[in-house]
Design a protein around this nucleic acid. Sequence first.
DNA 1: TAGTTATAGTTTCATTTGTAACCAACTGCA
DNA 2: TGCAGTTGGTTACAAATGAAACTATAACTA
Lengths: 153, 153
Amino acid sequence: MPTRRHPDHAPLELERFLPYQLSIVSNTVSQAIADDYQARHDLSVTEWRVMAVLARFDGLSAREVAERTAMDKVAVSRALARLVAAGRVRRHIHANDKRRSVLGLTAAGWKIHDEVAPMARQRERELLARLAPEEQAWLRCILDKLMPDDHEG
Amino acid sequence: MPTRRHPDHAPLELERFLPYQLSIVSNTVSQAIADDYQARHDLSVTEWRVMAVLARFDGLSAREVAERTAMDKVAVSRALARLVAAGRVRRHIHANDKRRSVLGLTAAGWKIHDEVAPMARQRERELLARLAPEEQAWLRCILDKLMPDDHEG
DNA sequence: TAGTTATAGTTTCATTTGTAACCAACTGCA
DNA sequence: TGCAGTTGGTTACAAATGAAACTATAACTA
């Protein structure tokens, strides 16, 4: 290959650069999961994340969904608009605060959830299967530490 | 908080779900780095990645840049258009193949590179500083294993 | 060497995403 | 009350992104 090196400039080795590796691994994995449900259920990643949060915490407001998914409120608003239109999420208005919405999955939403969640878990298992049990434990521990403080469990 | 649980539906715990954690950590880190140079140098993430690759491998074609950055060729084409227009990358035509471009950083490109690369490295150090030395080693090892085959070093 | 197929790169167009402005409802306080 | 500031959520517009079509060159094949 006709390439010269420039050691004097100390160029970054992208393929050993952690932020880059993280981004590749993360995108590859997320895309693999998304491929499972995107075509089949016409569901975007953001929509699925909203559904996943509502599956765990019924009655959240849009802002709370945004907090828990680490998405910004506009993205959540758009995802909710589609999910409500598709009859997957029900939305009514908070009794004591008319600005706030009270969200939850509909029966149709649960049906999709119960199909997608196991697939997602399966993909996670496949990812971990590439690692030794010891490494799996370290990865969990390390990611917990690297999660920004405002998204810790 | 007025939320009910639905254990019968086995909802995903997003904050313990590896693909989700990866995506949060990756986005947070990449954004932190991007903030360093985006405003200062009017440089997008994709543009920086192209520059980083050209810093290491002088004379690559656009397709080879796309391979090494794991970006698609349209994104690379656009990034290159901006970089060339800004005088940060030079592009001439391959002697034996008039379709191919031969790319490299200009003096101005190197100047920016030599400012941004150390900042990026510093951010990587800050990320690793949150981990014990033992964990740092495991993380490197684990990410190498998780990198898709077509992007291994 | 004509005709086909493949490759490098760009352009076009539709979709997605992000930012800022916006509206409506709530809160605090004089 | 009534006005200032805040918060929940949507809308509008601009920038980024992706898929497919397109141009030009090169390679292969009969």
